[in-house]
Structure formats: C-alpha cells, structure tokens
Design a protein around this nucleic acid. Structure first.
Lengths: 220, 220
DNA sequence: GGTGGCTGACTGACTAGTCAGTCAAACCGA
DNA sequence: TCGGTTTGACTGACTAGTCAGTCAGCCACC
C-alpha cells in the first residue's frame, strides 16, 4: 500500500471514531488527513468504494494477527485465542477499531459487498478456533467434543462481550467480585473456567490467563 | 400512545428495516405511513427526538416481555429466558427489530441519550437472569455459583449469537450435525448443555428446549 | 368560528462527486 | 547535461442534488 493510501485509511479510522458511520462525510475524512477531499475521490471513485476498501484493510490485518502462533500446543493456542479478545476501555485504539467494525456490520444487511467481507471474517474466526479444538482432540489434549459447536459458542460469547463492552460506554465495568472488571475480561475468565477447563483431558492444565495477556502485550 | 404515534413508530420500524439507520430519512419514514413528513415534525421536534422515542418504545416493549412468568420454578424460567433468544431467518419481524436495535447500539458512543437507554436495557437483562439464578441457588435448584458472572456470560453469548445471525445474512446457518441450524439455536443448545445443566443440583432436570419453544410460540 | 391535527410548498445548509488546472518529479532525446 | 515533455498526485472551486426543519394555511369536528 502506498503512503497516501495508508494515510487515507488512518484518516478513515480517525474520522469514523469521532463521527460514527452514520454521520461520516468525505470532508470529515479529509479533515483527519493532510490531504484534500478531492484526493479521496482520486484514489477511490465513491464513498462506498472507500469504505469497502477500509473494511477490507481492517479485516485483512485482523486475519493476519490470527495466523501466527500455530506452533504452540492446543491448550496454549486456545488461551491465546481467547486472551486476544480481552481489552480495557483505556485501549482507545482497540475500542475505536471494533466500534467502526460494529457500525459497518450493522450495515451488512443493506450492502452485499460489506456482507461478503463479514462472512469471510466470521468463517475464518470459527474455523481457526475449531481447528485448535480439533487438533487438541486429535492429540489427546481435549476430551472429544464437537469442535464446530464449541467454536461457535465461544465466538458468539466473545463477540457479544466485546459488543457490550464497546456500546455500553464508560460505565461498562461489571461490579463483580467486589471489584470492577471489563465485560471481555469477565467473559473470557468464565469461558475458560466453564467451557475450556471441563474439556481438558485428565491431568491437563490451562496456561494462566494473566501470563498469556502479558505475553501478548509484549508481542504487539 | 395515540393512534398517530403508534402509526409513526411502526413506520420508523419499517423504514429502518428497508433503509438502515445510516441512510434513513424523514421522508423514508413518512413514505412508510399514510401521513406526511410534516406530521413527523409536528409530533417530534427533530429526527433525533423521533429516533430516541422509537428506541424507548422498542426497549420498553422488550422489557415488558421479560417480566412475565415470574411464578415458574427457576429451571423453567432460565430455559424460558434462553429460549426467547432463539429465532429463525424466516422470522422477518424479529430480525428487523434486532437489526434496528443493533444499528442504534452502534450509535450509542456518539449519543448520550441512546447510550442511557442501552444501559438501562443491559442492566435489566442481566439482573433478570441473575435473579433467576440466585433464586435457584436459594431454593436448591442450582449449585452455588456467582449469579452475576454466570448471567454476564449467558447474556454475552446470547447477544453475540443474535448479532452474528442477523449480520451474516442468508447463509448464516451453521453446518452442524450434518444439518443446518441457526446461530441462536446452536448457541442456546450449547449454553444449556455446557453452562446450565452442569450447575443443576443433584437429580434435577431441565425442561426440554423444543417444548419450551413451542409454548412460547403459542403465547405470542 | 375556533381549535388541533395535519399538509404541501418552501428554504438554507450540507454533501458527494466533478473538473480544470497546479506542481514536482520522472523521463528522454540530443 | 540540458531543455522540453509527460505523468501522476493533488487541489480549490464548483454543481446538482438531498436533507431536516419551517410555515402558512387547510379542514373536520366540537
């Protein structure tokens, strides 16, 4: 990608973050970059084209982050996978990213091109997780369960937790355990304890969530 | 609510359904009713006011549906609660309703009034579920678990499943068990088997999902 | 005949997209 | 190496169209 295109995509992200999808104008995007509105049309014929390109960008980057770490054992990979969904409200970047994505998702049913991108992303997410589970069953790490069903449940819970954390704003902390904890964090902890732990084969143990989170932090 | 206001709300729902929140105009809404655009402004000063009123309407009705059935035993109430989230793509009405809600949700972070409504709804949802679980623990139906945490997990999974089913369109069936099954159905089945069943006290059994779905169908 | 519900015609603000033209760097033949 | 030419990135000014919101007035019913 060229420098200019890169700057445009960053500008879209910033504009989307401060205006939201519904109120987004080409001028808003231009204002977030050092370039003019005309340039946006120079590189992308229409506003719709620009937004599709942005979504494609977003999802491609997202997919690339999923691919690494395939060499780890299944129990580490699954904790990794879940841990990647945890974030705090302070992580503005992440929150803005997923809010933009959520807005585009809600436009899916009205726009075939958006929907196609979303389906590609959903399939990859579920298949990646199902593969980890299937690998774990094959090598005896996990008890035999239906990988597709378990993956679908985990992905739904992670998605829901993220959506709620994003849309419920500042006050989204759950007053659990006497302490405040984010929706994503609480959900991942519960999923590990209620879903993943019980399917571990006799004698197996799960990597610690905090340790994994710290490692992921160091990587990025 | 007056007849006119009722007609306006229905028109908003229909317009939202065919145009989506981002492209919705006052004229679109007027076109879906037998009234004029001016009338919309006569009853609601601004477009924002109208949409807030619509959201309030939506959530109030939603909340009322939650309240009934408080006389049932906890294991029936929890299956009821989960079963209410199951729907098929054929159920256009439901799908449109939740799509509209999703679009408004994604606007929450840009609009305080929307966000306040969303928070009220989230709290009610989680508290209702937590209360069912707490009641069940108190009367020995369920093993002692943290009601708030379990409720948060269940609500997140239900929300995520619904969002995915809505946004992934026609091809949203999961090819599970060799047969196609909706995201919401698969998730509720898994939640019952993996989360609810395990916290049932010794000797307890859960009501059948299909039976409960049929009963809910008859009620509406 | 007055009042509340309602309308059509209108307007000013705003928006996506266009277009003619600028400018600097790359290119190229002598 | 120099002059001229082309090219691609980029811009400001413009246009046609759309939108929310206004307003004067209509009309059915009290």
């Amino acid at each position: 990608m060229s420098d200019a295109d890169d700057e445009i995509m960053n500008a879209v992200a910033r504009a989307l973050r401060s205006h939201g999808y519904a109120d987004l104008t080409m001028q808003d995007i231009a204002d977030e970059s050092s370039k003019s509105k005309s340039l946006l049309h120079y590189h992308h014929d229409t506003k719709a084209d620009l937004l599709i390109a942005f979504l494609d960008d977003l999802l491609t980057e997202y997919e690339q982050r999923l691919e690494c770490r395939a060499d780890q054992p299944p129990e580490q990979r699954i904790v990794d996978f879940l841990a990647r969904f945890v974030f705090t409200p302070e992580d503005d970047e992440r929150e803005a990213f997923h809010l933009a994505l959520l807005e585009m998702r809600s436009q899916g049913p009205f726009n075939d091109r958006i929907q196609a991108q979303l389906e590609r992303s959903d399939r990859l997410l579920r298949e990646t997780l199902a593969e980890i589970i299937a690998d774990g069953i094959a090598d005896g790490t996990f008890e035999p369960v239906d990988p597709d069903r378990t993956a679908a449940l985990l992905v739904a819970a992670l998605d829901g937790a993220r959506t709620r954390q994003i849309t419920l704003g500042e006050a989204n902390e759950l007053p659990l355990d006497g302490d405040n904890i984010t929706y994503t964090r609480a959900t991942v902890e519960e999923l590990l304890a209620q879903i993943v732990e019980p399917i571990l084969a006799e004698g197996g143990t799960l990597p610690d969530l905090d340790t994994t989170l710290a490692e992921l932090d160091r990587e990025d």
